[in-house]
Amino acid sequence: MAEQVALSRTQVCGILREELFQGDAFHQSDTHIFIIMGASGDLAKKKIYPTIWWLFRDGLLPENTFIVGYARSRLTVADIRKQSEPFFKATPEEKLKLEDFFARNSYVAGQYDDAASYQRLNSHMNALHLGSQANRLFYLALPPTVYEAVTKNIHESCMSQIGWNRIIVEKPFGRDLQSSDRLSNHISSLFREDQIYRIDHYLGKEMVQNLMVLRFANRIFGPIWNRDNIACVILTFKEPFGTEGRGGYFDEFGIIRDVMQNHLLQMLCLVAMEKPASTNSDDVRDEKVKVLKCISEVQANNVVLGQYVGNPDGEGEATKGYLDDPTVPRGSTTATFAAVVLYVENERWDGVPFILRCGKALNERKAEVRLQFHDVAGDIFHQQCKRNELVIRVQPNEAVYTKMMTKKPGMFFNPEESELDLTYGNRYKNVKLPDAYERLILDVFCGSQMHFVRSDELREAWRIFTPLLHQIELEKPKPIPYIYGSRGPTEADELMKRVGFQYEGTYKWVNP
């Protein structure tokens, strides 16, 4: 592979701008107003304001973009700056750019259920340069409990009458099928589907988006991507930290609602779906819905739930269990780990287990898709061969690698495990991989909904998990304890083995 010439960040961002501006969906010269509902909250200060700053800094926003914060707290732009700027990672050389960014910011205080507050917000936006005809993007960085009041008031008082209007809704989209349907029906009564952007930030990850290209742009994968060759698929999300004093919020939802029903299920769809007619948003989402419709409700015998306990040999936070978090209700049975087996009941995947695993306070930070292939028929190497695996590593250190057998150097035919490896950090030294939120917010500006969740996708996802969630809430089974920093409950490994996964433990990928 030829040595790549190092590029400056300015040059890299210039390439990104060229890609972005050559499309006809990006209205570079139009006025846009980006409204952050819930501007005083954690999500706004840690993710949304920093993301908008990065896009502005790199010249990736339309030229005439204004940012308006809205929340109940009586704040000023200076207050917003004070709480969000520490997350910007701005350099001293960017000081003038930073001043320009905050000059485009404003803030309006108001209630979430008060019509007069929204009329005041609308008047404020109209007073901005060309504000009355601007395109408006409303980001709901809010708890779902206020979605209905907020969307109703936005629709009645704050819509642009000339430009387009788009609304970005953060997960969780309800707690179960019934609450999700209620919320979807409410929002759909106010906005068209092409105006609604239900954001799952995992769909903005580079390697998640790469799944489609790997599958449908490489001839070698087509013939082997089926039940005849693939023994099982494992989708993993692991965090090495616990709730760390923020367990009160987590306890309301648990690990299945927080990660599995959305992030992991979306990745499953991209692995299992048929080739779409095109890369058009609805063509892709149509195929994802077909996959979900082929999955039956989760069966309790295919589920393992766990909850982390303190590690007596650990240090600091590792010595504390979930129930030691003062914000967690006493005696909570909320799971911090889950392993679930699903089956896609169609011709391509009949009988292939899709194993979804996620948890907190585990032994490493990792998100990946792992396809394990069947054993080689007619073994001539005296059971020395391990199964081939194709691994798409989402985070950290984005990579695609194939675990395969090669001859060990020497005189004899002794096979050993090795890999074919594409590590993004080595291959793409001159490429700026956008943060997931950067990519998705740019998608909203461009009107691309491919990486957002459609209402029928959402409904099918909740259909699969709601009976299990209701059973857990009714019966309150005690989750299996696992030690902070471990791989999780051993019962999860036993479940995976029972459905056909072979864990060798003899080879570990190392970032080159």
Rank of each mutant, 00 (worst) to 15 (best):
48 I>T: 04
179 S>Y: 04
12 V>L: 09
25 A>F: 11
61 L>D: 00
192 R>D: 11
40 S>L: 05
149 A>M: 06
88 F>Q: 03
204 G>H: 14
176 D>K: 05
184 S>P: 02
198 R>S: 03
171 K>R: 14
84 S>Q: 06
75 L>Y: 10
165 N>A: 06
51 T>G: 05
156 E>L: 10
164 W>S: 06
51 T>R: 07
24 D>E: 12
256 I>K: 01
87 F>P: 01
150 V>I: 10
204 G>Q: 15
121 L>E: 00
22 Q>L: 15
135 N>K: 15
220 I>W: 15
207 M>E: 12
204 G>V: 15
62 P>Q: 02
129 H>A: 07
248 G>T: 12
188 S>Y: 05
154 I>M: 11
106 S>T: 10
232 C>G: 11
78 A>P: 09
59 G>E: 04
129 H>K: 12
230 I>Q: 00
25 A>L: 05
257 R>F: 02
152 K>H: 10
47 K>C: 11
54 W>L: 11
253 F>M: 14
38 G>R: 00
69 G>W: 04
139 Y>N: 01
232 C>Q: 13
198 R>E: 02
163 G>T: 00
107 Y>E: 01
91 T>R: 12
79 D>Q: 11
103 A>R: 08
206 E>T: 14
217 A>Q: 07
148 E>H: 10
108 V>K: 02
62 P>H: 11
182 R>Y: 14
115 A>Y: 09
59 G>W: 01
98 L>E: 02
243 T>F: 12
80 I>F: 11
237 F>H: 08
25 A>R: 10
138 F>H: 00
208 V>S: 14
225 W>N: 00
147 Y>M: 14
126 N>T: 08
236 T>R: 02
206 E>G: 09
93 E>V: 08
13 C>W: 04
164 W>P: 03
253 F>N: 15
244 E>S: 12
101 F>E: 00
50 P>I: 00
29 S>A: 12
151 T>C: 06
63 E>F: 09
99 E>K: 07
105 N>L: 11
256 I>R: 01
118 Y>D: 00
137 L>F: 09
61 L>N: 00
63 E>H: 14
184 S>G: 07
32 H>T: 11
25 A>N: 11
121 L>C: 02
185 N>L: 08
112 Y>S: 04
142 L>F: 12
80 I>Y: 04
3 E>M: 09
91 T>L: 12
156 E>V: 10
116 A>V: 06
30 D>W: 05
30 D>G: 10
15 I>S: 04
46 K>S: 05
94 E>F: 03
73 S>Y: 05
43 L>Q: 10
109 A>R: 10
102 F>E: 02
156 E>W: 07
149 A>L: 11
226 N>M: 03
220 I>H: 03
153 N>I: 03
249 Y>F: 14
59 G>K: 04
125 M>C: 11
137 L>C: 12
214 L>F: 05
174 G>F: 08
170 E>I: 03
115 A>N: 11
78 A>G: 09
185 N>F: 07
86 P>K: 05
236 T>H: 04
222 G>N: 11
115 A>R: 07
257 R>S: 12
48 I>Y: 01
240 P>W: 05
224 I>R: 01
175 R>N: 14
249 Y>P: 13
188 S>W: 06
11 Q>I: 07
174 G>S: 06
139 Y>I: 01
44 A>M: 02
254 G>R: 00
47 K>V: 14
169 V>W: 06
51 T>D: 04
169 V>F: 10
54 W>Q: 12
111 Q>P: 05
30 D>F: 10
57 R>N: 05
27 H>A: 07
41 G>T: 13
93 E>A: 08
52 I>R: 01
13 C>E: 06
182 R>T: 09
47 K>I: 11
220 I>R: 03
130 L>F: 11
226 N>P: 00
242 G>T: 09
217 A>P: 00
152 K>L: 12
38 G>E: 04
84 S>F: 09
191 F>S: 00
200 D>R: 00
15 I>T: 08
151 T>P: 08
254 G>P: 02
48 I>D: 00
19 E>H: 10
179 S>D: 06
200 D>V: 13
173 F>M: 05
58 D>E: 10
250 F>G: 04
125 M>D: 00
60 L>E: 04
41 G>P: 00
49 Y>A: 01
30 D>H: 06
11 Q>Y: 08
225 W>F: 14
231 A>F: 03
63 E>P: 08
95 K>S: 08
94 E>N: 04
208 V>C: 15
68 V>K: 00
137 L>T: 06
235 L>P: 01
236 T>K: 03
21 F>I: 12
35 I>M: 03
45 K>E: 04
48 I>N: 00
247 G>Q: 09
78 A>N: 12
216 F>E: 10
246 R>W: 12
171 K>S: 11
2 A>T: 10
15 I>L: 11
52 I>T: 05
3 E>N: 07
8 S>H: 07
43 L>H: 13
169 V>D: 01
137 L>W: 01
12 V>I: 09
176 D>T: 06
118 Y>N: 00
251 D>R: 04
241 F>N: 12
179 S>W: 03
131 G>K: 06
216 F>D: 15
72 R>I: 10
139 Y>F: 09
10 T>D: 08
91 T>V: 12
16 L>H: 11
9 R>Q: 11
218 N>C: 01
195 Q>A: 04
105 N>A: 08
123 S>N: 09
30 D>C: 09
57 R>S: 03
54 W>I: 04
182 R>C: 02
92 P>Q: 06
60 L>H: 06
161 Q>K: 12
32 H>S: 05
71 A>G: 12
159 M>N: 05
52 I>S: 02
77 V>S: 09
127 A>Y: 05
155 H>Y: 08
81 R>T: 02
100 D>R: 04
257 R>D: 03
189 S>T: 07
119 Q>K: 10
181 D>M: 05
226 N>Y: 04
83 Q>V: 09
246 R>Y: 12
118 Y>F: 14
208 V>L: 11
142 L>C: 11
17 R>F: 09
134 A>D: 05
16 L>N: 07
110 G>T: 02
85 E>F: 06
69 G>T: 06
95 K>R: 04
219 R>F: 03
42 D>R: 10
179 S>P: 03
212 M>G: 02
94 E>S: 04
133 Q>S: 09
195 Q>C: 09
122 N>V: 09
84 S>M: 06
109 A>D: 07
190 L>W: 12
133 Q>F: 05
180 S>M: 02
180 S>E: 05
180 S>V: 06
27 H>W: 07
179 S>F: 06
175 R>G: 10
163 G>C: 04
190 L>G: 02
81 R>G: 02
211 L>K: 01
68 V>S: 01
205 K>L: 04
194 D>P: 06
66 F>A: 08
186 H>P: 11
246 R>I: 14
239 E>K: 03
163 G>Y: 01
193 E>L: 02
153 N>A: 09
249 Y>I: 15
53 W>K: 01
54 W>T: 13
12 V>M: 10
74 R>H: 05
239 E>D: 12
74 R>A: 12
183 L>E: 12
111 Q>N: 11
7 L>M: 07
79 D>W: 04
32 H>C: 11
53 W>H: 00
70 Y>N: 02
15 I>M: 10
114 D>Y: 05
89 K>N: 11
44 A>I: 02
113 D>Q: 06
243 T>S: 10
30 D>K: 13
175 R>Y: 14
131 G>M: 04
196 I>T: 05
218 N>P: 01
79 D>Y: 04
242 G>H: 09
45 K>D: 01
133 Q>L: 05
150 V>F: 00
220 I>F: 13
14 G>V: 03
222 G>Q: 06
44 A>S: 04
207 M>A: 15
245 G>N: 10
3 E>A: 03
241 F>G: 13
152 K>D: 12
82 K>N: 09
228 D>G: 12
166 R>F: 00
169 V>N: 06
92 P>W: 10
121 L>M: 06
39 A>G: 05
44 A>Y: 02
